[in-house]
Design a protein around this nucleic acid. Structure first.
Lengths: 243, 243
DNA sequence: CCAAAAGTGTTGCAATTACACCCATGC
DNA sequence: GCATGGGTGTAATTGCAACACTTTTGG
């Protein structure tokens, strides 16, 4: 978690700890009420929304940086992050960054290192919406979920990054390891289907979906059913541990 | 093309022109005598082979940087480059770089900026072997093609980069735009097949291959045949311009 | 005429798609 | 009992892989 003190030293001596000009940005997808959600940060006292992102430590691997940045800026831990693309934005607006640091009451020298051009490596992940408590860091007012197609416009080139991440996510849906992290240990077939539909943004045929999941050995049925709901009680399933 | 003068000013004031800590590396595939080739540079008077790579200009897009670096270091122009992955190597060996610059008779101060850790964005391309004259730059002895599985061991993490590029190339073979650049305007079906086989590293069925290419509308047959060779004269084909 | 390369067609399997019917549950 | 959602099956289609036969060409 970034504190006030961290932020204060960031502009003056951050380059000692971090590589300038390279950052990671995380596109975090969640799933709630049959909708795909996106985790966004709102800058303090400014109507600027961005992806959680940050710089890379001088001796830190890209992967490790992505995990640390995500934890520091949103509180999320133990997330499966996947690199998907590098973005060479020359759009970074000095003015926005100056404004934020003005609001925070922190000094920004004229040639402060983070005002320069930044190349950003994009990572995405799917996380279990209900098991996560997003927490804004010192730089932000809010860390909150947004429905994927009702999100506010994002700063810099972050809208492009989200678009590309969603594309990648959709095309990698056939590997079950990803979606496994979004559901509880045991789940019903309709639940799994809602999740796939939310990610793909289109409806799927119930019967074909079930057949595919079972034929491919992606999930296996348990003896138990989920009772209590209206209508017929659905079976419970779980992901098979094998490949 | 990098000259002696460029190299000399590179270590001292290069950071004014380029972003430190971020580079692009190009994996250039060629095709000759039914073999997939790889374009490599050998450092001057040292047995160190690397991919053509370089730094990114401060106001230059990633894409533009990849094209410029490739041209400067190998002489190749007008190549379709595709970004495929970012590599966060912490393996960069100071010693190698000092050695090269020692050989070149160029001074390297102790805290020279290019000695630091580098994050590299990988680009790959397929080029027409016969239309290209690779030319080594000032930093290199040799700029030469190597058969993909007889290449020398590469420095830094460049072997990983090649592996990943080859993976990406293979999985993107169904989009014809890539391979189109490797063949002349008009070509025979066997020629196209050899190319696919070289990329995939395995033989393909002649008949199924032909059917697929024609059914999908990837190529269309011309009236003409290629005469002069032994055996039956094959038809000529060309890529369809649509989609 | 024959070896080697090129052109054409058939068949079977597997995955995907579309669609129809039966079962359970709460109101 | 009936609307709603959940479970099962079947036929048509598509893409891919395996395989056999005919045609052309130079030697």
């Amino acid at each position: 978690m970034i504190t006030r003190k961290d932020a204060a030293t960031f502009f003056t001596r951050g380059y000692e700890k971090y590589l300038p000009h390279v950052s990671v940005d995380c596109v975090i997808f969640g799933f709630h009420r049959a909708e795909l959600k996106l985790l966004l940060l709102k800058w303090k006292q400014a109507n600027i929304w961005t992806l959680p992102g940050g710089y890379i430590g001088r001796r830190e691997s890209l992967e490790a940086a992505a995990h640390r940045v995500l934890r520091d800026r949103t509180g999320l831990k133990n997330v499966f992050l996947h690199q998907f693309h590098a973005f060479g934005s020359t759009k970074r607006k000095e003015a926005s960054i100056r404004k934020l640091f003005g609001i925070l009451g922190l000094p920004v020298s004229r040639d402060a290192w983070p005002l320069g051009r930044v190349i950003s490596i994009g990572y995405y992940a799917l996380v279990d919406f209900s098991r996560v408590r997003p927490q804004a860091d010192y730089l932000s007012d809010t860390c909150a979920w947004h429905a994927i197609d009702e999100r506010p416009p994002l700063a810099f080139d972050h809208d492009d990054i989200v678009t590309k991440a969603l594309e990648t996510l959709r095309s990698s849906l056939d590997s079950p390891s990803l979606v496994a992290t979004l559901l509880p240990e045991r789940f019903t077939m309709p639940e799994l289907q809602r999740l796939h539909e939310a990610i793909l943004g289109r409806p799927l045929d119930r019967r074909n979906f079930q057949k595919k999941m079972l034929d491919r050995g992606i999930v296996e049925r348990l003896a138990e059913r989920r009772t209590g709901g209206a209508h017929r009680s659905p079976f419970l399933y779980r992901f098979t541990t094998q490949t």
